[in-house]
Design a protein around this nucleic acid. Structure first.
Length: 275
DNA sequence: CGTGGCTCCTGGCGGC
DNA sequence: TGCCGCCAGGAGCCAC
């Protein structure tokens, strides 16, 4: 089962792109829905990639960067809520980046036709995703004010960034300017692991809480990568399995509370995550 | 300057 | 059974 693309999902997409797209010359590109393009046009994208080869994939938070070798430019993909990658030779048997297959293309928005006859595509049902063409990922990351990648950030940087803010804890964790890659689901999971209330004020955190948040955030993200972003495979005690109406806390069986925090639907255990 | 709310978009689902 | 309206949600943007 798969949810919104956060850091672990995009890491899996990166590996999928490495396996299926890198090193295969691109014969052509089809933009099936131009709104997915950000700051570029179908014609400009075609000029950038036609006859060229992708030779490197990079990820920062929820962004995936694909290097186009000869013009030395990069494609940037953001997957919004429902985006993912696909690869196929025959569109009645489409392999998705999550490792399953579909009998047809759902909401293919961009399709790269590779010279070997296969196709590499960007599927994005709800159209919140974006594809851009840029010169330099580092400059792009800076321009978007993205924080360090949530899997690589060290405790000191994490602490400093968090303590630099005020207000509720959960929106801070989800702020891509603090660390890049944590979305709604893994923010809730991180808070649950540390037994911290999503609306706890940052000023109330003690040093032990900060260490726990840093450790839990990275562990949760890494474990999700390790199970290939299949959330059903996460450890049994995880809150993520119980994110549904009438879900119960895996620790004490308390009915989970569902509340909007920072504009996002938030699941937490009112018994073990007290204010 | 921080924060809350609106917007984009589409399919699924709850309610009548 | 059928249809309508609401809701989800990342992130940019605006207003306060």
């Amino acid at each position: 089962m798969h949810g919104m693309p956060e850091l672990p999902e995009v890491e899996i997409f990166k590996r999928f792109a490495e396996r299926h797209a890198l090193g295969r010359p691109i014969a052509d590109v089809a933009v099936l829905h131009p709104k997915i393009l950000d700051g570029t046009t179908a014609a400009a994208l075609a000029r950038t990639v036609k006859g060229q080869v992708l030779d490197e994939a990079r990820r920062h938070g929820k962004h995936l960067f694909l290097h186009v070798k000869k013009p030395d430019r990069w494609l940037v993909l953001h997957f919004g809520m429902t985006g993912f990658l696909v690869w196929y030779t025959d569109d009645t048997c489409v392999t998705t980046a999550y490792g399953d297959t579909k009998s047809r293309n759902g909401h293919l928005r961009i399709r790269f036709d590779l010279e070997d006859g296969s196709h590499f595509g960007f599927d994005e049902q709800r159209m919140f995703g974006k594809l851009s063409v840029i010169d330099d990922p580092d400059a792009y990351i800076e321009a978007l004010h993205l924080g360090p990648d949530a899997l690589g950030v060290d405790l000191k940087t994490f602490k400093a960034g968090l303590l630099n803010r005020k207000g509720a804890l959960k929106p801070a964790l989800m702020d891509q300017g603090l660390v890049a890659g944590v979305g709604n689901v893994y923010a809730d999971e991180t808070l649950f692991q540390c037994r911290l209330h999503p609306e706890l004020k940052i000023g109330e955190l003690n040093p032990e809480d900060l260490r726990c948040l840093h450790r839990a955030m990275r562990t949760v993200l890494q474990k999700t990568v390790d199970c290939r972003a299949d959330r059903d495979q996460l450890p049994e005690g995880y809150l993520t399995h119980h994110r549904h109406k009438n879900g119960r806390c895996p620790r004490d069986r308390t009915r989970l509370e569902i509340r909007t925090v920072g504009g996002r639907t938030t699941y937490f255990c009112p018994a073990c995550q007290r204010l």
